[in-house]
Simulated assay, not measured.
Amino acid sequence: MKAAFVRKTGAPDVIEYGDLPQPEPGPTQVLIKVGATAINPIDTYVRQGVVSMITNFPYILGCDLAGVVEQCGAAVTRFRVGDRVWGSNQGLFGRQGTFSEYAAVDEKWLYDTPDGESDADAAAGALVGLTAHLGLFLHGNLKPGEVVFVNGGSGGVGSAVIQLAHAAGAAVIATAGSDAGLETCRNLGANLAINYNDPNIDDQIRAFAMPHGGVQMWFETQREPTFDRTVSLMAPRGRIILMAGRAARPEFPVGPFYVKDLRVIGFAMFNASPEEQRTSAEALNALYLRAQWKPQIGATFPLSETAAAHRLQEDNSLHKAGTLRGKIVVIPG
């Protein structure tokens, strides 16, 4: 089968495109003919070796996938040949990834693809949708009527946070860096969209949120959080959700933080149990069927151009190029 893989860690040019043996599914695995996969920042960290997840080479990259079940292991109970499925959490902890024509995946990491959803959309929404849902509900305990702020609302996780928070009855504030990005945020359900370069951004957040007592949930997607301004805009007993900024070491205003009874909650989606992730996946499927969840795709590449797709992801997630809104999808074949 064709695959995008690495024989060593490094820059995007270490990615090779070529033939590898088709995997055989284990007892609890299904073999999937991959229809689409998507790139996430974590994929670039694994490829660079910044996150030590690779246990042996050659190693196939990629967390997300969607496709069709071609074969089931002897102990598989949830799926049958011909089922359309989507999932994430691959390419981590030594598990081979998804950037290939076929992938063997344990059934606990897979979910039915809703009727009418394409493989490209299902793959694009996999990790970012699970991340947003876990952060908002499992960790953040979001309630209807609360004010949610999300940085980077036109990006992968940010666009998911807007949609899921809006569907839950929250009032959503989002930022973007261009008029097109702001329009995307509004179309996804943001009540207030602000250019993050606007010098009056905090005044606008404060004016919107203060009738509610401030921001109840600050969903931070940026790599360099600024806690002084965040804490000043929070409502008493608000929650600050952190899921990025692996190398960040920001200053922290302890006094203003604790006198408001605030909480800081950090999480990584791949720490969630299979049961917790399935709960989020089933909620995403239900929202899709109610037209309240639509993954955003910003660029599409063939599998043979995975290295170029990684460069685009790295330019935007690490170097803030601002040339991407939504997810990068990679199509085998």
Rank of each mutant, 00 (worst) to 15 (best):
Q313R: 05
P256R: 15
T44R: 06
E117K: 08
I297W: 05
I162H: 04
V329K: 06
F257T: 08
V76I: 15
V30D: 07
G91S: 08
S273V: 08
E224D: 06
A283N: 02
Q71S: 08
V264K: 00
Y258P: 00
G18I: 14
P41W: 15
K260T: 09
M210E: 13
E117L: 15
K327C: 03
L134G: 02
V161E: 00
G189Y: 07
H166W: 04
Y196R: 15
N187H: 11
C72N: 03
F227H: 09
A248L: 06
S273C: 08
G87W: 01
N141T: 09
T55Y: 04
L20T: 13
N89C: 12
S100R: 11
W218N: 05
A38P: 00
V76C: 05
S52F: 04
A235F: 14
L233T: 12
L312S: 04
V81M: 03
E224V: 15
G125S: 06
M269W: 05
F252I: 12
N151R: 05
T77E: 05
P256D: 15
R229E: 13
N195D: 11
L138R: 09
I241T: 07
V254K: 07
L142P: 00
T98V: 05
V172F: 13
L136C: 05
N141H: 09
T77S: 12
E314I: 14
L289K: 14
V330G: 05
L61F: 09
V85R: 14
Y102P: 00
R278F: 09
I162F: 09
F219Q: 02
V34R: 07
L318G: 01
G145V: 06
P144R: 08
F93D: 01
N40V: 04
Q296N: 08
G10E: 07
G26L: 14
D202Q: 11
R239P: 03
G82F: 14
E305M: 12
G158P: 03
N141D: 06
G125L: 13
A235E: 06
P236S: 15
E183V: 08
A123R: 10
G169Y: 11
Q48V: 03
A283D: 02
